[in-house]
C-alpha cells in the first residue's frame, strides 16, 4: 500500500518534471526576495529618517489593498506574461511590510539610547548605523517574514500566467483532472511554504534575542 503510494508519487514527479519546476519556483522566489531586500531596506531607512516618510507608507498601503491576483494581471499589459510580472507583483506587494516595519523599527527606539549616543559624541549617521539600525533588526525581520509568505503566494499564482513555477503543475492538475498531480504538488508547495516561513521565523527569533531592546 505505502509502496504503491510512493510509486504513484514518483511517477507523477518524473512525468511532470517537478524537480525542474521546483527549481524555477525557488529561483523566482529567491529573485523576488533579493529585490525586496535591495529596494525595501533603503526605502524603509529613508522613510525612517525623512519627515515625509509616511507619504511612502500611504502609497504602499493603497497597493496593499489591491487583491494580489489583480495586481499580477494588471502588470501583464506593461511587462507581458511570464516571470517578469510575477517577480514585479511579488516585489510590489511585499514592499509594504518591509518598508513599514523598517520605518517603525527606526522611529520607535527609546529616546534615552539616542541621547546616550549623542552624549558620546556620535554624529547622526553613526547613531543610525550603530544604534538605531541594529535595534530595529527584529522588526525588520518580522517584515521580511511577511514578505516571504506574500512572495510565495504570488510566485505560486504566477503559474497561471506562464511563470512556470509549481503553480503551473497545479493548474495542469486541475485542468486535466489529475488528482495525484494536484495532491503531490499541492502538499509539496504547502511544505515548501511552511519551511520558508519557519526559516524566516527562526531568523526573526534569533535577531530579537541578539538585538532586541531588553530594558
Amino acid at each position: 500500500m505505502i509502496a504503491d503510494i510512493i510509486a504513484d508519487i514518483s511517477t507523477v514527479w518524473v512525468k511532470y518534471n517537478l524537480t525542474t519546476l521546483t527549481y524555477i519556483h525557488l529561483t523566482l522566489f529567491g529573485t523576488a526576495i533579493l529585490l525586496i531586500l535591495i529596494i525595501g531596506l533603503p526605502l524603509g531607512i529613508f522613510a525612517g529618517i525623512s519627515p515625509r516618510g509616511s507619504l511612502f507608507i500611504q502609497i504602499l498601503n493603497i497597493i496593499e489593498m489591491i487583491p494580489d491576483i489583480a495586481l499580477l494581471l494588471l502588470l501583464i499589459p506593461i511587462t507581458g506574461i511570464g516571470a517578469a510580472p510575477t517577480i514585479a507583483a511579488a516585489v510590489l506587494y511585499s514592499l509594504l511590510p518591509v518598508v513599514r516595519n523598517t520605518m517603525t523599527g527606526l522611529t520607535t527606539i527609546r529616546p534615552e539610547l539616542i541621547e546616550i549616543g549623542e552624549a558620546l559624541g556620535m554624529t547622526g549617521r553613526e547613531i543610525l548605523r550603530i544604534i538605531r539600525f541594529p535595534l530595529s533588526l527584529p522588526l525588520v525581520a518580522g517584515g521580511i517574514r511577511t514578505a516571504v509568505v506574500y512572495s510565495m503566494g504570488i510566485v505560486t499564482l504566477g503559474g497561471i500566467i506562464g511563470a512556470r513555477g509549481l503553480g503551473a503543475a497545479l493548474q495542469a492538475g486541475i485542468t486535466r483532472n489529475n488528482m495525484t498531480l494536484i495532491l503531490v504538488t499541492g502538499l509539496w508547495i504547502g511544505l515548501l511554504a511552511v519551511c520558508m516561513d519557519t526559516i524566516a521565523g527562526s531568523c526573526e527569533r534569533y535577531l530579537s534575542r541578539r538585538y532586541g531592546d531588553q530594558r
Partner: peptide, 16 residues
Amino acid sequence: LLQSIPAFTIVALVVP
C-alpha cells in the same frame, strides 16, 4: 503556520 500556505494551493487541494 497554515497562513503561510499559498491560496492557490488550497484552491487546488480542495478538488480531490
